[in-house]
């Protein structure tokens, strides 16, 4: 992290609400602040419904508006004032400056188009200067660890395993060289061994490409080797943040403590897996 550089991401008082019929809007994110420097890697953790994905999608205005209502005092993403961009400007930013990987590669890839077509589309949109698209695609497939990339070019998504599909998604996200990659639970749909491979791949690519990474997950076990900093979200608020080692070893907020206590550990004798006591949290939880 270089202190002299301008922040890659600067968000102040971000609120996301969803309109509801016959009721007050539901507030999914309640005024969070977030700053991220170029090259930094942040993990956002929290349980389902805590507002992690809504925050990530709001960064590129991907939430359908309405029903979503996004407001912020400041929302600067990769040098763009996202809230004041037109749809055309947003589209130019998406994929080129900020890229996403989602959790279900099976449904995120178009089943009737080949791997080549889908990767070439991203290149055509954001890197029209690339002359030999096939060579570029093959090189990216190699980088994400796909064996025999020449063969896989003509493959349809259903001919690939889940892990390979996710690797294709990663290649597709990275081939336009974005400055910020947002991985929204990229390993949820994969088995444990593949999860490890994908996380290692992401960490390695981040280092080699020098990009920033926001990793959204509810799995605290996978963030240690990938993230520099951790943000813990609970009910639409960031309740604790800090370096990954500090959060994992000495959490201060009761919710973070409860979250870590719920992680089963090998070699530790536990009669019963702990769960979070929400009634206690609500009475005692401070914001750190």
């Amino acid at each position: 992290m270089t202190p002299n550089l301008a922040p890659l991401l600067e968000i102040k008082n971000l609120r996301i609400r969803f309109k509801r019929y016959g009721a007050e809007p539901a507030e999914a994110v309640k005024g969070i602040n977030l700053t991220m420097m170029p090259g930094e890697s942040i993990a956002v953790v929290g349980e389902s419904g805590s507002g992690k994905s809504a925050t990530a999608l709001a960064l590129a205005r991907l939430l359908p508006e309405p029903p979503a209502l996004i407001t912020a005092d400041q929302m600067s993403v990769v040098g763009h004032d996202v809230l004041n961009l037109s749809e055309r400007q947003l589209r130019r930013m998406r994929g080129r400056d900020i890229a996403y990987i989602f959790q279900e590669p099976t449904t995120s890839l178009n089943p009737v188009l080949t791997v080549r077509t889908q990767l070439a589309e991203a290149l055509t949109l954001h890197r029209p200067d690339v002359k030999d698209q096939d060579a570029e695609i093959i090189s990216w497939l190699c980088q994400v660890g796909i064996a025999e990339p020449e063969k896989r070019l003509r493959a349809y998504p259903h001919e690939l395993s889940g892990g390979m599909q996710q690797r294709v998604m990663i290649a597709m996200a990275l081939c336009c060289r974005p400055q910020l990659l947002i991985a929204d639970e990229p390993t949820t749909a994969l088995d444990v061994t593949i999860q490890k491979q994908i996380m290692e791949l992401l960490a390695e690519l981040r280092r080699s490409l020098g990009m920033s990474l926001i990793l959204i997950t509810h799995n605290l076990g996978i963030i240690q080797n990938v993230a520099d900093r951790v943000l813990v979200m609970f009910r639409g608020e960031i309740v604790e943040q800090g370096p990954v080692h500090e959060i994992l070893t000495s959490p201060k907020h009761p919710y973070t403590q409860a979250l870590l206590a719920c992680v089963p550990r090998m070699g530790t004798k536990q009669h019963r897996l702990r769960t979070i006591d929400y009634s206690q949290l609500e009475s005692t939880a401070p914001r750190l």
């Binding site: 991907l62 998406r94 994929g95 996403y100 995120s108 991203a122 949109l125 996200a173």
Partner: peptide, 10 residues
């Protein structure tokens, strides 16, 4: 997921 992914790619 498909449409969201496509929109995210611009």
């Amino acid at each position: 997921p498909l449409i969201l992914g496509l929109r995210a790619r611009g």
